[in-house]
Every structure is written in structure tokens, then in C-alpha cells.
Design a protein around this nucleic acid. Structure first.
Lengths: 204, 204
DNA sequence: ATTTATAATGACTTTAAAGTCAGTGATTTT
DNA sequence: AAAATCACTGACTTTAAAGTCATTATAAAT
């Protein structure tokens, strides 16, 4: 099962291509990145891309699948062990911040990506949705029950994505989540918690 | 000031091109519509487009400017005379529904459009934002004041846009706003109104 | 009636990118 | 050491679209 030097180098090259592509995608957008850009940035020739990926679509799909996998795993790690609602929301934002440039690209461009890539993105959303439900279940007494869980979740996602999508207007040149995380957590929390929780929330 | 027949026909042709382009944009997406598609659908030759618009960018910009103007005017009409919060939210959604296919396209694609088109889109958002503030000011006693106005507004916009953007998942083959308008209005209202309003709201 | 102006045409040119492939030289196998 | 393999190259081909322009037919001006 020993790898030859060639095999290893090939894998390393592919790795570098995925990594480089992800960086370029994050910086200049996925749709706006040419195969030639990736090749140049990775220091290989144009043709090499097609040795590792049949088509540009495959490249995009593999990059998105790879990094969505990572994001889902990390978000799971951060949110599954959260005690209360605020902690959960906070952890969720921390997780997003770790991948913010690429995550933002997916928020904006996911509708234009190949099917496999969109699927990977939807999987991340589903993972978050699952942990959100778990959290609400644990905190059932503190979260308002007169609004369906799905609406609570979609409100939260919509809010975050709205800020990410318009990050260049809300926080030009910096991380919009970093700048607004307290505003987002705090105020969303106010809107979804029951009255009787208010004095508890304030004491944190 | 009398128009010759030729001038009128030229204007009519341009009109038809704008109208046709808007329909195609709504149906198949703006980025996904070729100049040749518009020409064919409007029953003119490819070259005619460039008699009326210097470039494809200008065509897109003029279409978006035109229909954003219409949307802003209509939304103004519908929302400026609203009595209470619920009426306002409802009127807002009614307005969006009138332009839903094109509006949805703008939600999804605005980041990829020429600058002039993006500006027109941002102007629509600003107009809504203005009326939203007006409404909150009028209803100051019913809307919670512990959450900043900007967050209330962004939560509402984020929520609606989240549903529009994922309309094909939430309501495949039908108007997502039509299907969810009561859910959206009702639950958002619960989240932003003060406790003491609750019995009033229920009686409606 | 003749000339002029112009909306419309569609074949042609250009452009920008993706995708191909014969060739090269380093690595592995025999 | 010779032969075989294969990662990588980059010039070339293809493709799909935007954009151009000489020509045509018709309305307007003389």
C-alpha cells in the first residue's frame, strides 16, 4: 500500500489546486474566477487543471463539497454542546466567521453553482437547522412557542444572510459578522424569547 | 412637436424590447438570458438590439431601472396609507407579489448586475426602508423599542428575501409569497410587537 | 418624382474562455 | 541500464456569445 513519490506529488498538486481555488473563490467570487486564474495562482499550467478535474464544473463542485464538509463539521462541533440559546447563536456566528469569505460567496452565488455544489451547500443549512431544533427543544421554556420553529429558524438564517450578502454596505472592508455579532445575537434573542426570560437574559 | 411615424415605430420597438427582456429575465434569469434570446423573443434581428442599446449592459440597466422605478412607485402607493403594522406588512407583500418573478430575480442576481442596475435596486430597498420607519413611528406604542429600528427592518427584509431566494424549495411551482404571506406577516408581527398589543392583535 | 435619411437586417468579426493533445522529461519498473 | 509510465506543459482548437457594418427597404423631405 506504499505510495510512490509520483502519486504523492499528484495528490499534493490536486490539494494545492483545491486550496488555491478556494482562496480565489473567496476573494473574487466563484463565477468570476477563470480556470486560468486558478492555474496561474497555483503555479501550474492551464492544462494541468484538466488532468485533475474533467471540467471546470467538477473543480467548482469538488471545492464546494470539500469546504462545505469542513464547515458542517466545524459548526457541529461548535454548536452541539451549547448550553443556552445565546451561547448557541454566538457559537453559530463564531463558526461562520471562521469561513466568512467563502461562506459569503456561497450565500451570494449558490444559485448559479453546479448541482452537486448546491447540494453540498443545502446540506450545511440542514445541519444547522438540525442543531437549531435540538437547541430549541432543550430550551423549550425560554423560546416562544407561538411562532413555529421553522419560522424562528428562517428568520435567523434570513437575518444573517442579509447581513452577509450586504456586508460591503454594512461593514465595508471588515467582517460584517464580527462587527454585528452582538447586535444580531442580542436582538434576535429578544425577539424569540418569552417575556419571563427577560430578566435572566439581562443578567448575562 | 409632432412625432413622425418612424420615430413612433422606433420607440415602440424599444418598448417591446424592454418588455420582452423583462419577461425573459423574470422567467429564466438575467445572467442566463442572451441578447439573441431577447431579439428572437421580440421578433427582431440580433443587430437591432444594438441599434437601441449600446451594449448588453445598457439593456440590462435600462430594464432594471425601468421596472425598479415602477416597483418603487407601486410600493409607495400601497404602503404609505397604511393604518397599522399588520396592514403595512400585508401591503408590502401584496406589492412584491405583483412583481414577484422579476423581484425574485433581483434578490438572487443583484450582485452580478451592472452598477446602474444595482443602484436602482438599492433605491427600491431604501424606499421601503423609509416607509417602514414612517410606519413604526406612527405605531410607536405597539412596536417594541428594545430592538433598533434598523434590526427590525433588516429582520423583515432578510426573512422575505430568504423565502423568495429559496422559493423553489419552499413553494415549488407557485408564488412563495402568496403561500406564506400570512405565516410571514403573522409571526413577524408577534416577534416585533410589545406584549400589551397581543390581545389587540388577536382580535383582528 | 427624386433625393435623403434611417430603422432594421443578418452575415461577418472579435473576444474570452473552456477544453484538447502531442511532446517532454523525471520516475518507476523490469 | 533500458524501457515504460505518467505528471505536467503550453500551443492549439473549439465554442458561445457580444458586438460591427455594408446593405436594404421604406418613410420623410425636397
Amino acid at each position: 500500500m506504499k505510495k510512490t513519490m509520483r502519486q504523492m506529488q499528484k495528490e499534493q498538486t490536486k490539494e494545492r489546486l483545491l486550496e488555491t481555488a478556494c482562496q480565489l473563490f473567496s476573494k473574487q467570487g466563484i463565477l468570476n474566477t477563470r480556470v486560468a486564474d486558478v492555474a496561474q495562482a497555483a503555479g501550474v499550467s492551464h492544462g494541468t487543471i484538466f488532468l485533475h478535474f474533467e471540467t471546470q464544473e467538477r473543480l467548482v463542485t469538488e471545492v464546494v463539497e470539500r469546504y462545505c464538509g469542513g464547515m458542517a463539521a466545524r459548526l457541529h462541533e461548535l454548536t452541539c454542546s451549547c448550553g443556552d440559546v445565546r451561547e448557541f447563536l454566538s457559537a453559530h456566528l463564531e463558526g461562520i466567521m471562521e469561513f466568512e469569505p467563502f461562506y459569503t460567496r456561497l450565500v451570494i452565488e449558490n444559485r448559479f453553482l453546479p448541482l452537486g455544489a448546491r447540494d453540498a451547500w443545502i446540506t450545511v443549512q440542514s445541519a444547522i437547522s438540525y442543531h437549531f431544533s435540538q437547541m430549541v427543544e432543550r430550551e423549550i421554556s425560554l423560546v416562544r412557542t407561538d411562532v413555529p420553529l421553522s419560522v424562528l429558524f428562517n428568520t435567523w438564517m434570513g437575518l444573517i444572510h442579509y447581513y452577509l450578502e450586504n456586508g460591503d454596505l454594512f461593514a465595508p472592508g471588515e467582517s460584517v459578522i464580527h462587527r454585528y455579532k452582538n447586535v444580531l445575537c442580542g436582538n434576535y434573542l429578544k425577539m424569540i424569547t418569552t417575556e419571563r426570560m427577560k430578566h435572566d437574559a439581562k443578567s448575562i
